[in-house]
Amino acid sequence: MANAGLTSYIEKNSYFHKVNPLTKLLILICVIILSFTLKNFIYILALLVIIIPIAIKSKVLSMTFSPIFKLYFMFILLFFIQGFFHPYATEKLIDLPFGFTLWKDGLLYAAYIAARIFVMMVFGYWFVLTTHPGDLVSSLSRIGLPHALGYIILTTLQIIPRFRTQMQTIIDAQRSRGLETQGNLIQRLKSFVPLLGPLFMGSVQQAVEKSMALEARAFSAKGEKTSYRQATIKTKDKVIMVITVLFSISWEVLSWTL
């Protein structure tokens, strides 16, 4: 299996895995725009009706909805902050003891934001589950993403897991030598510095050596670049794109006219 580094990408042989990354990106962008501009949260939440069949066809249904587990605490706070303290609240729902007031427009606003975040997360998660980052970058490069930017994104995804394991090893090693991971705050802060010294030093050395390695492989060459990965835009991509745009426009119009 192709190792995609730090991503949630899951290699599967599904219809949407084979759809061009740009097509899927267009869906995502439309959803993001819609979730900021639709009239109310019902219209936003209704977008979930679309993602269900798509996620089933992508063979990642349960994974697609997993962001909810990371979000529920944030949503509780959101309803608390906006419900009681919405800065521009006018419509009272209920007066509570100690001078607290629960505002109706505050709660509605919270619902609107929660729907927006949840829908963006679900579509976003579906996108990364089905899109190999290498394919994403190479398709973006073909429509003008600067070569260097593509390099940065791909490399970062590759090296973060390595940095993490490296750091975890250092932490474990230091811990066995009596590194203060409990103790009081000052002690813990002090033990922080010896952990980071080697990290920064090693990073600089790595940056210098890596840039030599890149130079040795014509990284700074002028002229057109090609790509080893190639995702073509097929007819089905064009069809999906047109449907997406048409749907988005009509849903937007519908939400404001009905």
């Binding site: 192709a2 190792n3 995609a4 580094g5 190999h132 980052p133 290498g134 593509g150 390099y151 791909l154 490399t155 590759q158 090296i159 050395q205 790595q206 050596e209 890596k210 030599m212 390695a213 890149l214 040795a216 492989r217």
Partner: peptide, 16 residues
């Protein structure tokens, strides 16, 4: 040109 550290010579951009 190839040099010492095998890991630092990997561009990192290649997933395979």
């Amino acid at each position: 040109l190839a040099f010492q550290s095998p890991a630092n010579q990997l561009t990192g951009a290649g997933t395979t």
